[in-house]
């Protein structure tokens, strides 16, 4: 066990995986000599060489497409996109090649690869270093979309993603990269990708959240002594229906919190699924506290993302209902 930040935990996970499996190749802009702009791949070039930790030309489409080819040929590519905001020139590769390859070939080709990228706010990066684009990926059939909320989960989920025989979009909340340390095993361990985590039990309402919003939800609930059950989804798609349903049936009230915009977002799918299956258990409307439905602004970012005030207002509304 070592006290690690999320960045350190991810780095430790990559190192553990690369040590035992020489088919793993990291690639991306500045991941080599520089160790990645957030330092997630720090020190790995020196240890594994440039055949396995590859600085690439500045072309996201190439980073993803090249990684897909490697994984089609029996390697296991772990491409990094420097900021999720810059992934869009690779969206054709992600949606049309990566996500569909197993299905359209009926498993002739499978694609074990993990596409890592930092997302969300927290660094005052304005419209192009702060986006939360998870819904683009969750609406694409064939992708597994994972997002950790703490250093321990980050490493365990990353290692499980690397072992999966399917493509994973691994979204790293950049606001949590250096947000705190916790005890993380130095050795290899995994976390079930198909299971959400109940991080706090409670009876009065269920709060479903994930990734960058989790610490905020947790501190808000603790500070205000709310009798809430908090579910950290960990994997957004395919999400863990059973854990959600068990909690909703117990509490009868649901709040969904995420940093990405509300319209057509992950919360909408969760809300619809819950209503379809558990309307008789619900004692109040399902509420959402999310990022605003505008691009994320530079100077006023703090008003854009969910905060304690907005979350408490929704909780109080639900409790009073």
């Amino acid at each position: 066990m070592t006290q690690m930040t999320m960045v350190k935990a991810l780095n430790s996970g990559l190192n553990n995986a690369m040590e035992r499996d020489d088919s793993i190749i990291l690639l991306g802009e500045d991941v080599g000599t520089d160790g990645g702009v957030f330092r997630v791949t720090d020190g790995l070039l020196a240890k594994y060489g440039k055949e396995r930790v590859m600085d690439t030309p500045l072309a996201e489409l190439g980073i993803v497409g090249f990684g897909i080819g490697m994984s089609m040929a029996g390697l296991k590519a772990i491409p990094e996109i420097q900021f999720q905001d810059f992934i869009y020139t690779a969206m054709d590769q992600i949606i049309n090649q990566m996500a569909k390859l197993r299905y359209r070939t009926n498993g002739d080709y499978t694609l074990p690869m993990v596409l890592r990228t930092p997302y969300g706010g927290g660094v005052h990066g304005g419209p192009y270093h702060s986006q939360s684009g998870e819904a683009y990926f969750t609406h694409t059939q064939g992708l597994t979309v994972v997002t950790p909320s703490n250093p321990y989960d980050a490493k365990g989920l990353l290692l499980s993603s690397i072992e999966l025989n399917d493509p994973v979009i691994f979204l790293e909340p950049k606001r949590l990269y250096y947000a705190g340390r916790m005890e993380v095993p130095d050795d290899y361990y995994k976390i079930d990708l198909r299971k959400a985590s109940v991080i706090k039990e409670g009876d009065a309402l269920t709060i479903i959240t994930y990734g960058p919003a989790v610490p905020l939800v947790k501190s808000t609930v603790e500070k205000n002594n709310v009798n809430a059950e908090i579910i950290d989804l960990r994997t957004l798609s395919p999400f863990d229906l059973d854990t959600i349903m068990a909690s909703v049936k117990k509490t009868g009230k649901v709040l969904i919190v995420h940093e990405s915009p509300k319209m057509f977002g992950v919360g909408a799918e969760l809300s619809a699924t819950i209503s379809e299956r558990a309307i008789d258990y619900l004692a109040a409307p399902i509420l959402r506290v999310t990022g605003l439905d505008i691009p994320i602004p530079f100077a006023l970012e703090d008003y854009y993302v969910p905060n304690e005030k907005r979350i408490m207002a929704a909780i109080e509304k639900l409790l009073k209902y």
Binding site: I25, E51, L61, G62, V64, G65, F66, G67, I68, G69, M70, S71, M72, A73, G74, L75, A77, D92, Q93, N96, Q97
Partner: peptide
């Protein structure tokens, strides 16, 4: 859409 994939396959061959 296959050109970058083909190039990655060539990398695997070389590696």
């Amino acid at each position: 859409g296959h050109l970058t994939s083909a190039t990655g396959i060539a990398y695997a061959k070389k590696y």
